[in-house]
Every structure is written in structure tokens, then in C-alpha cells.
């Protein structure tokens, strides 16, 4: 089959981007969306052009690297599927696909379809963990966790951090991502001692990052390749206001968002001088 890929090309974070249309012939319906881009890139390289930069790694739907908009839907039209597992048979011969990067102030552009999602790492860094150093753990079975509780925690823990929730949200809110981690850890008894601190810290960080607000409309959960339920957002809201009410000091601090990549290379080494 033949497809036309209309792809957002942008050289760098501050560069001006634009859409460019590429016809791709000989698309095999068994290909994944990413393999289709591979084929396009091979032909671009052979023509001496720069290939389309896109993020990918495991290509089995779990690492969360890949993701872009296909015709206005994060990860494309198939529910619960990342672009790496989306096969081309779901499209029609001759169709035009518009591929666009996630767009959000909190996900600055890097190049073409690649964006910077370090804001997610910072939200986890602010408190998305149970503070237990190696060696401190009691025997696994001293903490009993009912099957239904463990299952609910697992539902929330399934998040792959791809950013589709932010991309789908009309407000570019990170509520589903943050709520998923707060829920995963808060549902389990191991996470309860730190529950208030975690909610305050993670919500504070989420608010320092330029994400929008949640308006409870549910686009995020519809786009989520792991189908994380909206329930995790309400859990975050509850934990947050309860923790705010109980809070006795103002010790919560957040991390300054950082969009720069350069560490300022100091290396000016002449390779000829050494050989």
C-alpha cells in the first residue's frame, strides 16, 4: 500500500518547524508505524537528506520512549497501543497520516518528533518513591497486601511515562502521570507512612512545571496506552488536600525546571596533537 506521511520537521528546540509531506510506497500492512518510518528514513538517507528523528527503544510497548500524534490522536487510532506496536493494516491505502510531536510547554521540542520529557523525571524525583535504603527491608511476607489491593496498585503502576496523557489533554496537564504514581505507592501499605509528604512534594513539582490544570474531562485516560483510570487523579486530589490541611510546616521545596541540555563542554582537544 501507499501512504503519505505529513511529518513535523524541526531542526532544534528553538528552530522553526514545518510540515513536510513524504510519500511512502510499498508499505507492508504488517509493518509497525515505526518500521514505516524506518523505511522512509532509509530512503531519505540514501537521497542524502536527514532522516526524521523519532524516539524509540524497546519496540514492544513498555519502555515508553516512542509516541507522537497520528492524525490528532496520541499513539494513533488503536486503543491501548503504542506507535511501536501499531501496525499499518489499521490504515487505508492512499491515506495521509499527519505525524506531530507531543506539544506542551513542559515538553520542549528537541528535534522533529522528539521532545524533552525530563519534567516527568523531576516529578518522580520530588517524591515518587518509598524512602527505603538498600538493606532496610523486612521479609517480604511481613507486609501483607490483599490481592485486590495489589491489583489496584499494579493498575496504576503500569504507567510507562510516555507522555500521551499530557499530549492528549487540551490543557497539557500531567495529572494522570502524577496521580498514577501517587496512587501506586499510596494504595500499598508500604507507601502509607510517606503518603502526605509524597502528595505535597509531587503535586508541588507538577505545579512548578509548566503543565496545565486538570479539568476532569478524561482525554488522558482515553489516550493512555496502559489505560490508567481517571481514579488515580481523584486519589491525588484527595491526598493533596488532606495533606495540605494536616501540614504543620512549609518545608516543601521544588526543583527548578531545566530545559538546557548542554553541560558546557570544556574540551578543546586537538586530535592531531595527540596522535
Amino acid at each position: 500500500m501507499k501512504l503519505t506521511l505529513r511529518i513535523w520537521r524541526q531542526k532544534s528546540r528553538n528552530g522553526k518547524g514545518k510540515f513536510i509531506s513524504y510519500p511512502v510506497y510499498n508499505v507492508n500492512p504488517e509493518m509497525s508505524m515505526l518500521e514505516c518510518l524506518d523505511v522512509l528514513n532509509e530512503s531519505l538517507i540514501e537521497r542524502g537528506e536527514e532522516p526524521v528523528a523519532f524516539e524509540h527503544d524497546c519496540r514492544e510497548g513498555i519502555c515508553g520512549s516512542c509516541g507522537f500524534m497520528i492524525n490528532g490522536i496520541p499513539h494513533g487510532p488503536l486503543p491501548a497501543t503504542t506507535v511501536c506496536q501499531l501496525t499499518m493494516r489499521h490504515f487505508k491505502d492512499g491515506q495521509e497520516l499527519v505525524l506531530e510531536p507531543w506539544r506542551a510547554a513542559a515538553f520542549p521540542s528537541v528535534k522533529d518528533l522528539v521532545v524533552d520529557r525530563r519534567s516527568f523525571d523531576r516529578i518522580i524525583e520530588a517524591g515518587g518513591y518509598i524512602s527505603v535504603s538498600t538493606g532496610n527491608a523486612p521479609d517480604g511476607n511481613t507486609i501483607l497486601v490483599g490481592k485486590d489491593v495489589a491489583d489496584r496498585a499494579m493498575d496504576a503502576a503500569a504507567c510507562i511515562g510516555c507522555g500521551a496523557c499530557v499530549a492528549a489533554c487540551p490543557n497539557a496537564s500531567a495529572a494522570l502521570f502524577t496521580g498514577a504514581k501517587i496512587s501506586h505507592l499510596g494504595i500499598l501499605p508500604q507507601g502509607v507512612p510517606e503518603q502526605d509528604r509524597r502528595a505535597l512534594n509531587m503535586v508541588a513539582q507538577m505545579n512548578v512545571e509548566p503543565f496545565g490544570s486538570c479539568t476532569n474531562i478524561g482525554e488522558c485516560t482515553g489516550a493512555c496506552p496502559k489505560e490508567i483510570p481517571l481514579e488515580v487523579i481523584s486519589r491525588m486530589n484527595r491526598d493533596y488536600w488532606q495533606a495540605s490541611w494536616k501540614q504543620r510546616d512549609e518545608l516543601v521545596r521544588t526543583i527548578t525546571p531545566m530545559t538546557e541540555w548542554s553541560t558546557g563542554s570544556k574540551l578543546k582537544i586537538d586530535p592531531n596533537a595527540t596522535s
Binding site: F19, R103, E219
Partner: peptide, 14 residues
């Protein structure tokens, strides 16, 4: 939070 909008955006769930 979204200074550059999408050229195309579908509502899927709301």
C-alpha cells in the same frame, strides 16, 4: 501550557 497548538486534534474520550 500549550504555546504551539496541534494542527489537528481529535477528542477521543471526553
Amino acid at each position: 501550557a500549550r504555546p504551539i497548538g496541534y494542527s489537528r486534534k481529535e477528542a477521543i474520550n471526553s
